[in-house]
């Protein structure tokens, strides 16, 4: 019993640091760069992706013995796309301001490699509870990385913190937290470049350097993009498969 709890905790915490999807596995870079212009958007995106991740992990893990190996990728895509569309409809209905802020990036959670990656790497091999916890950990890790990016970019690029917080808080009713709608840093001229696309790449680069520094200290390998090797779809990709076959021969 204690063992089980311990391992579940491990599944959860690995997504935060050791296997942080953004900073260590370099997955989901597109939304990380695109929606980190404001902290409120980053949290909204992170929560939406986490919900999809947990739900799809649970369903895929529950169906892991039913889905034939041959059609598993299309089956995963169908499951993930359904959850994404459901989340999208709920956001449209209850948090319309977030829907217009995230725009096309909300339906694009479908092709966020973190989700398909976890389905392929974890959920189809592990029991339901562990998969749910894994999804939760990865989702929180993704949200944390997004949050860090957004904190720096919004603070330096717009001179605000939690700007437009009521857009999210509206879900819980009007004027929650005393109508808190973000703070503006006084006497500070924002460096607009930080919320422009170039600022996104720059902040991500610096954050990555920081993650590398920590990795070096802990003697872990650095986060690196190796062409297709890290891609969660590599199992089905003919290029990688043929390369593997070449190696075998």
């Amino acid at each position: 019993m204690a063992d089980e709890k311990c391992s579940l905790r491990k599944e959860f915490t690995k997504g935060l640091l050791r296997e942080n999807p953004v900073l260590r596995l370099v997955l989901g870079t597109c939304p990380t760069l695109a929606v980190s212009t404001s902290m409120v958007n980053a949290i909204g995106m992170g929560v939406a992706a986490t919900i999809v991740l947990v739900c799809s992990n649970i369903v895929i893990s529950a169906l892991r013995k039913v889905i034939p190996g041959k059609v598993r990728i299309p089956a995963y895509i169908v499951v993930i796309a359904s959850f994404v569309t459901m989340v999208q409809m709920l956001v449209k209905a209850f948090v319309p301001a977030l829907d217009s802020a995230l725009g096309v990036y909300l339906p694009l959670i479908v092709v966020n490699c973190i989700i398909l990656g976890r389905a392929e790497a974890f959920a189809n091999k592990n029991p339901v509870l562990a998969s749910a916890v894994d999804g939760m950990g990865m989702g929180v890790g993704f949200t944390a990385a997004l949050f860090c990016m957004a904190l720096v970019r919004e603070l330096l690029g717009n001179g605000t913190l939690f700007d437009g917080a009521q857009n999210l808080l509206k879900v819980f009713g009007d004027n929650v937290l005393g109508g808190f709608n973000g703070v503006t840093i006084p006497h500070f001229t924002p460096i607009t470049a930080f919320i422009l696309p170039c600022g996104g790449f720059f902040v991500f680069g610096v954050l990555m350097a920081l993650a590398n520094k920590i990795s070096d200290k802990k003697k872990l390998p650095r986060a690196e993009l190796h062409g297709c090797d890290h891609c969660p779809l590599s199992a089905t990709c003919s290029k990688v498969v043929s390369e593997r076959e070449d190696k075998r021969i």
């Binding site: 600022g199 720059f202 991500f204 680069g205 990555m208 986060a223 993009l225």
Partner: peptide, 15 residues
């Protein structure tokens, strides 16, 4: 040393 690899690539992308 710290910037080698991905960070340098990202900063180049920024420029």
């Amino acid at each position: 040393e710290t910037l080698k690899g991905l960070p340098a690539t990202l900063i180049a992308a920024s420029l």
